[in-house]
Design a protein around this nucleic acid. Structure first.
Length: 573
RNA sequence: CGGGGCGUGGCGCAGUCUGGUAGCGCACCUGCUUUGGGAGCAGGAUGUCGGAGGUUCAAAUCCUCUCGCCCCGACCA
């Protein structure tokens, strides 16, 4: 590509929309442009990088035996109604109607479509296993799109699905996909961690997330430095040990205008651990109260799992007032009628607690579980925090931030049952197919790669996903020899299949250097009068900043050998 | 959906409070000079001031409505 003819609209100034570095650099380097909130156009440079990530996925998935398909974006409502997700998915699902008024949605994921497809075609155990994937545009009407392509409403995803005879075989497929994913992210030049995750709305019995460590990540990860345990903070089991409190008597105290836990313990001059908070929810239509220690955060995912609820909403103010008979801020478990109470494990039989009194401006002190109120169930309900004990080795956990770039789920028979994906086994009996599903956010992987590979001047692409491998900089546009040698090298590199840009713009060298660094070409070749006098050109590495002088003869051979070697190293390390 | 903020040339912004000639930097075009880390000089082009309605002799500026975008939150009782 000749830079003078290329559509590489770089920007000197940071666009006001960009909040995180990857977003900023993707816009500045001319990879993307915003069309609407969470909706982006990919420009040539952005598309080239995305295609490389896609290609790496294709190669590794092929190696793992998966086959590529292409499923429709436009999904009929009927399939989604059969699995119940037409209702469960909520506002995130973009719905529309055709001219006849039939309901459709734009696929946010494709379990329904692919399971239905397999259900129709697979008859016998001889047809299994199957592993199908696609790379396709997904639509999720995110509550708050942000950070450029990191959380968009329309985005490219690699989603794959495995179909096996039984649980054991499904676990083998799962393990194979985990290995494929590791290779994919490694080849993309990412430093990542695999963590235990919650399976969320997609459902299933267990799952792992592939997290790229970055401070701008939206996910909290618990890591144990000593035994290597790592999990999404939503998933990490927590065992809170509360200090012993001697038996106290129940006493109602006047706490005017004291709503929050912080206000309560400050007002009462008691340790935060003694204060509890009671949060009221609506779970699948019935009221539920969760009671946890005040200094902790409720983990809504855990609560939802304990309740086995499909829909869990925090009660709004009018509901809280109706249930507790008090203003918001004074709900408590004592005398709460008609509400299921779920308390954190650590509160079982515990005394000396401060709880809301279900009366505006009042709390109880000295409350005791089992004596003054009774929880209908106990569970681990809180979010793991820095310093909590590792569930495996009991050493303190560290909290880190990560970007979720991949997620694998063991689905079991959740979709195959409702969509009747069955097969006839050797013994002649009808059995349900065991499924797994596997996703990679392609655009998010690109953004994550930038988060991990940049400096003050711009992007520093890992060789395997760089949009181009080499940028030839003609350092002096008036020098005929310089132009001639640049053209020669450009042609030579092209015939060696090197992805090369020739910066032949009528600009000063400084402008070309700045753009090259911003876009992040792994190598710059500088051809100027200085080196040419010696019969040399300069090869400068973006990553190390080191410059080598190489002879003009066979420069293309040297450069292309270098690039090949770097790509192979990334694939095998 | 709640709170906050912003919509002015391609990009980044000033001007709005206190109504009266639309302005700056970068980018862009022309010419000359310059040519190894975002050049200099000279000249030039580019605006329905997000949209609609209203107030006024007069609206980017005041009022009403509306659309879009960004940030925080959307659970911490």
């Amino acid at each position: 590509m000749r830079f003078s003819r290329a559509f590489f609209p770089t920007l000197k100034e940071a666009p006001s929309e960009a909040e995180v570095i990857s977003h900023n650099l993707m816009v500045r380097s001319g990879m993307i442009r915003r069309v609407a909130a969470g909706v982006y156009s990919l420009l040539p440079l952005g598309l080239r990088v995305q295609r490389k990530v896609e290609q790496i996925c294709r190669e590794e998935l092929a190696r793992a035996g998966a086959q590529e398909v292409f499923l429709p974006t436009l999904n009929p409502a009927e399939l989604w109604q059969r699995t119940g997700r037409w209702d469960v998915y909520g506002k995130e699902l973009i719905r529309l109607q055709d001219r006849h008024g039939r309901d459709f949605c734009l696929g946010p994921t494709h379990e329904e479509i692919v399971t239905d497809l397999v259900a129709r075609e697979v008859r016998s155990y001889r047809d299994l296993p199957q592993n199908l994937y696609q790379i396709q545009t997904k639509f999720r009407d995110e509550i708050r799109p942000r950070f450029g392509v990191m959380r968009g409403r329309e985005f490219t995803m690699k989603d794959g699905y495995s179909f096996d005879r039984d649980e054991h075989a499904a676990e083998e497929s799962y393990a194979q996909m985990v290995e494929a994913y590791k290779r994919i992210f490694q080849r993309c030049g990412l430093s990542f961690t695999v963590v235990v995750a919650d399976s969320g709305a997609i459902g299933g019995s267990f799952s792992h997330e592939f997290m790229v460590m970055a401070d701008t990540g939206e996910e909290g990860i618990n890591v144990c430095e000593s035994c290597g345990y790592s999990a999404n903070s939503e998933k990490t089991p927590v065992n809170i040990s509360l200090p012993e409190t001697p038996g106290a008597t129940l006493e109602k105290v006047h706490t005017p205008g004291v709503h929050t836990v912080d206000e309560v313990y400050t007002f009462l001059k008691l340790p935060a651990e003694q204060v509890t908070k009671t949060l009221l929810f609506t779970a699948d239509g019935s009221p539920v109260a969760s009671v946890i220690p005040g200094h902790r955060e409720l983990n809504e995912v855990k609560l939802k799992n304990v309740l086995d609820a499909t829909e869990l909403f925090l009660a709004d103010a009018p509901t809280v007032e109706k249930l507790s008979g008090a203003a918001v801020g004074f709900a408590g478990p004592i005398g709460l009628e008609g509400v299921r109470i779920i308390a954190d494990d650590c509160l079982e039989g515990r005394g000396g607690l401060v709880v809301g009194a279900n009366e505006t401006d009042h709390h109880y002190t000295g409350a005791e579980e089992g004596r003054d109120f009774e929880a209908s169930a106990f569970a681990d309900l809180t979010v793991a925090e820095e310093g909590d004990a590792c569930p495996d080795c009991r050493k303190p956990l560290t909290v880190r931030r990560g970007i979720e770039v991949g997620h694998v789920f063991k689905l079991g028979t959740k979709y195959s049952e409702t969509l009747e994906a069955t097969y006839q086994d050797e013994d002649g009996g009808t059995k349900t197919i065991f499924m797994g599903c596997y996703g990679i956010g392609i655009g998010r992987t690109v953004a994550a790669a930038i988060e991990q590979n940049h400096d003050k001047d711009g992007i520093v692409w890992p060789m395997p996903i760089a949009p181009f491998q080499v940028d030839i900089i003609q350092a002096n546009m008036t020098d005929a020899k310089c132009r001639e040698e640049s053209d020669k090298l450009y042609a030579a590199l092209q015939s060696s299949a090197v992805e090369v840009v020739l910066d032949d713009r009528d600009e000063r060298a400084g402008v070309k250097f700045k753009d090259a660094d911003l876009i992040g070409f792994p190598y710059k070749v500088i051809i100027g009068p200085k080196g040419l006098k010696e019969g040399q050109l300069e090869l400068k590495s973006r990553r190390t900043g080191e410059t080598e002088f190489i002879p003009l003869e066979n420069a293309a051979g040297i450069i292309s050998a270098r690039i090949t070697e770097e790509i192979e190293t990334a694939g095998s390390s």
